[in-house]
């Protein structure tokens, strides 16, 4: 049984790690500020959640798991607030969204 849980948590955590890397690559790769925000929110949501879920399986039912749940709730309540405030500030400052035709390279409509 503990073997199964170990494997499951390993899978969850590596998936979370993969999503974090994907999000970071997206932040590096995306053109324009707003599009980068979308990539960063992959880290905040799926990456963080999967890693915390994996850690939850490792910790079992203990105080640490309660703290992990609080951590998860914190991310879930705060990350959209922070993202929105950043986007809002950028909007107020007149940062224009990136458009496909103005970009330098590799853009195609789907």
């Amino acid at each position: 049984m503990s073997q199964v849980i170990d494997i499951l948590s390993a899978l969850l955590m590596s998936a979370g790690g993969v999503f974090c890397v994907i999000g970071a690559v997206g932040v590096l790769r995306m053109p324009g500020f707003y599009t980068r925000m979308h990539a960063a929110s992959v880290i905040d949501t799926l990456g963080a959640s999967l890693i915390i879920l994996g850690l939850l399986l490792q910790s079992g039912f203990s105080l640490a798991s309660a703290k992990l749940v609080i951590l998860w709730l914190l991310i879930f309540f705060c990350s959209p607030t922070a993202s929105h405030s950043l986007a809002n500030a950028a909007h107020q400052r007149g940062i224009k969204p990136w458009q496909p035709d103005q970009g330098a390279s590799s853009s195609s409509k789907n």
């Binding site: 980068r36 905040d44 915390i52 950043l86």
Partner: peptide
């Protein structure tokens, strides 16, 4: 934006490191 995301990642890194060093109660 990058700073915010780095903060999130540092947070996750910390959570994991508490488990690595066997003290998960310091989350």
């Amino acid at each position: 934006l990058a700073g915010n995301a780095i903060g999130t990642l540092a947070m996750l890194l910390l959570a994991i490191f508490q488990f690595v060093s066997g003290r998960p109660e310091f989350v």
